[in-house]
Design a protein around this nucleic acid. Structure first.
Length: 277
DNA sequence: AGGTGATGGTCAC
DNA sequence: TGACCCTCACCTG
């Protein structure tokens, strides 16, 4: 389920499992054999994410760069449970110690890069609402939008504008602020963008905490209060206001939820509620 | 048991 | 615009 919050969770799990440890790195599937050999036996320095990209830094200035794409998965488990994990699929990369094992399947990108290459990869990404949360990030993204004739629905999916927003957060955050998805970036009001950005800064950490995209306000408030109380938060299936609800009645106004492919993916919106620029 | 679409993004044509 | 990565959840039967 890879939007930015998923990569953040994986990076955090990898960091907790492996930092400071010498790791065995292999490619059971074989397609990453050369890269794995390069990393095998090194000590892990850190694991981090930005947007939908993930890097594991190993000693000697080498980084494992991963992008899950649409179908990739990256699991991190304690070795105690390894026997219980069903051995399905082709493991592109396995990282293990005596106590932990991580398995990467179906990624779009799995490669070894240098610090210089990481820097240029970061340069191509806009601010991540999970990491660069300050007002300067909001302005930086707005400056890009305000210069563009593309729609805000397209721009939200452009990782050089904002890093980490995917197709679910796109539809849901536009609905939450009643913004017309087809508003050209250059016509998007500064206040609208401010509300959208601030909301992403609020929502994405809930995705990190729960492992699920939470955008319906009742659930948002519930999760926030339970987190504030220090309670465990486990959630049932995903709910959404508009995402994947084409043809259903809008919860707010009753109009039919609409759908159209924008930036190569299915956008969902309420044509009656979402009229703001 | 088998089919399909999906929370992504790049590259070849 | 389509192939690709080749997983996973959610159908159909």
């Amino acid at each position: 389920m890879p939007e930015g919050h998923t990569l953040f969770r994986i990076a955090r799990a990898l960091d907790r499992a492996f930092v400071g440890e010498v790791v065995r790195v292999t490619s059971p599937q074989g397609r990453f054999a050369d890269g794995a050999a390069l990393l095998d036996g090194r000590r892990v320095a850190a694991a981090t994410s930005r947007g939908k990209h993930l890097w594991v830094e190993l000693e000697g200035g080498l980084f494992l760069h991963v992008h899950l794409g649409l179908i990739g998965t990256f699991t991190v488990d304690s070795q105690a449970f390894v026997g219980e994990v069903r051995p399905v699929g082709a493991v592109r990369c396995r990282i293990e110690t005596a106590s932990h094992v991580a398995e990467l399947r179906g990624p779009m990108v799995c490669e070894v890069v240098t610090a210089q290459e990481v820097a240029s990869q970061l340069d191509r990404l806009g601010p991540d609402p999970l990491r660069e949360t300050g007002p300067e990030s909001r302005e930086r993204a707005y400056a890009r939008m305000a210069r563009s004739a593309k729609s805000v629905a397209e721009l939200l999916m452009d990782q050089t504008v904002v890093a980490g927003v995917g197709n679910v957060y796109r539809s849901e955050v536009l609905f939450r602020h009643r913004v017309n998805p087809f508003t050209p970036g250059r016509q998007l009001r500064r206040e609208s963008w401010g509300r959208i950005w601030d909301d992403l800064v609020r929502l994405l950490p809930l995705g990190v905490a729960t492992g699920r995209i939470v955008t319906v306000e009742d659930e948002v408030l519930d999760v926030e209060s339970r987190l504030a109380a220090g309670e465990d938060v486990t959630l049932p299936e995903r709910t959404s206001a508009v995402y994947r609800r084409a043809g259903e009645a809008c919860w707010v106004c009753g109009a039919r939820i609409r759908t159209q492919v924008v930036a190569g993916r299915n956008l969902f919106w309420c044509g009656r509620c979402q009229r703001r620029h």
